[in-house]
């Protein structure tokens, strides 16, 4: 177990979130949503605090965190890149785009570049299938991309 301490204010906020939900284990998923919002991910220490507050085993919290794709235990980059892997984007070349991001950034899906700038993920359908294939970087949607566009976009962000 890595020796990682949460900043005090984050710890206080996690406690507060649990309290507003009445420390009810039935509210675990809602609590995790709010807690993830604090730092962009759910470090182990945070899960431990939540488990303590709700009076349930940490394994239970961990079980839920790892079950759902939306929850993550790794910190995201400054520019979180999500390549849409919905079927519409897939048949219009989403996989080739993903390969190109992997290659250019030198990281795999679920990883963050060592400088903390970019992280790479897949998502399933943004609902902008008319623009397929689609990539989301932060809140911005990039549509109708080709692998040759990847380097340009990353350079622009850099």
């Amino acid at each position: 177990m890595p020796d990682f301490k949460l900043p005090c204010d984050v710890e206080a906020k996690v406690n507060e979130i649990c309290d507003t939900h009445g420390n009810d284990p039935g509210e675990l998923i809602n609590i995790l949503h709010e807690a993830q919002h604090l730092m962009g991910y759910l470090p182990e220490e945070m899960q431990r605090i939540i488990a303590g507050k709700l009076n349930i085993p940490v394994s239970k919290v961990y079980g839920v965190v790892t079950f759902y794709a939306f929850f993550t235990m790794t910190a995201k980059g400054k520019y979180p890149i999500s390549v849409c892997m919905g079927t519409a984007c897939y048949v219009r070349g989403g996989e080739k785009l993903l390969d190109e991001f992997r290659r250019v950034l030198g990281i795999d899906v679920g990883e963050t570049t060592p400088d903390g700038k970019f992280s790479l993920d897949c998502l399933r359908c943004v609902g902008a299938c008319g623009l397929a294939p689609v990539v989301m970087i932060g809140e911005k949607v990039y549509g109708r991309l080709q692998p040759v566009d990847v380097k340009r976009i990353l350079d622009e962000l850099d």
């Binding site: 998923i29 809602n30 949503h33 079950f67 759902y68 794709a69 939306f70």
Partner: peptide
Amino acid sequence: GSGFSFDIEIRYGAGA
């Protein structure tokens, strides 16, 4: 005024 009461809450899924 029908005597019927109803309310709705939202629960979030998390991608499964």
